[in-house]
Amino acid sequence: MANTETTGTSTGLLMRDGLVRRVGEAVAIGFLVVVAGIVTIIVSTRVDFGLLETIFPRFVDAFVRVLGIVIAASVLSILLGMFIGLGRISTSPITSRITKGYVEFFRGTPLLFQLFVIYFGIPGLWGGAGFPIPNWEIPAAIIGLTLNHSAYVGEAIRGGIDAVPDGQMEGARSLGMSRVMALRQVVFPQALRNALAAIGNDQIILVKDTSLLTVIAVPELMTVFRDVNSTTFQPWTPLIWVCLFYLVITMSMSQLVNAAERRGDPGRDGSLSALAGMFSRRGGGGS
């Protein structure tokens, strides 16, 4: 077939790049106009600015609480997730199967169920009254989010390890390093870099998962919304705060992930190398 023929005859609508681009723009702009219109109407007719100010401190309280829970669960789930990920690739079938089971369970059941097990189930073992830990909802929330998200982080890290070429392990072993040493010095730092995007995604989901904590009596953003709504019957005013406060956390988190990704690229020194260094220089690990 002659190339000159095809340009004239077989250009369907989707073959014309310029046209597709303009149609896409039109749709996107149309979408923006509709959304902006709806938001403008709602804000101007349904949002009570006086109330917005009055309820602000309550949302700040909830926000601080959520932030604390997020930071704790985030750090703990990433740490635990590293061990889960390493467990998954263990040469011991016992370790790899047990960690696989862990991942299957925590990914395979709803987070809300897991929170119920921890929040209701564990005190239930004391027969209701004798449970010794006050304000159990906060530790329960942190434990639940940590266990759940460490399963996802573990899978991300396992994927990151699998993506490191076999030659890296062989190169390290050929120098006389043990498998554990080669993992720590060579494979794991690269795996962490590979897994960064997936871990970041999961941590953003973790932030949003804190909205479930309202069900186990943690006074978080959704809880404040319900309190305000049920006394004022003005849903739109508190919803504004809910939206903004979640976005503050999730958007700064994705900035953080982007920055870590840039700095973690080979050829630059930065936070990730420092993080990797923490694992390579410190302590003689287990086997």
């Binding site: 070429p165 062989e170 190169g171 690269q190 080979p266 190398s273």
Partner: peptide, 10 residues
């Protein structure tokens, strides 16, 4: 020494 170098990129 390997065909694909296997240097540690980080």
């Amino acid at each position: 020494v390997f065909q694909s170098f296997n240097l540690f990129p980080h």
